[in-house]
Amino acid sequence: PLHLEVINESYMHNVPKGSETHFKVIVVSDAFGSKAALQRHRMVNHTLEEEVQKKGVHALSIVAKTPDQWQESIQKVEPSPNCRGGFGK
């Protein structure tokens, strides 16, 4: 990818300090080409399959853009919505 950012957003959630459970990933890549959002997200989900299904990553928020879309955007991504306490319940 042209740009890759992994943000640990666990601190925003109902988990112990220092947890690595809630993440946001920003991927900018030509590979997204003309693909729709659902396909792009599936590609990222597939790459991170092990982390999400086996290594306890509980929440994954994805921003997947092509280089052009990334240039057009303000290159900043909004934080995920606040927790409402349901983790592990």
Binding site: N82, G86, K89
Partner: peptide, 15 residues
């Protein structure tokens, strides 16, 4: 979703 529409238990579900 997690929770109900009236009382979502997760920020993503609430959104």
């Amino acid at each position: 979703m997690k929770g109900t529409p009236d009382a979502p238990r997760c920020g993503f579900s609430n959104a």
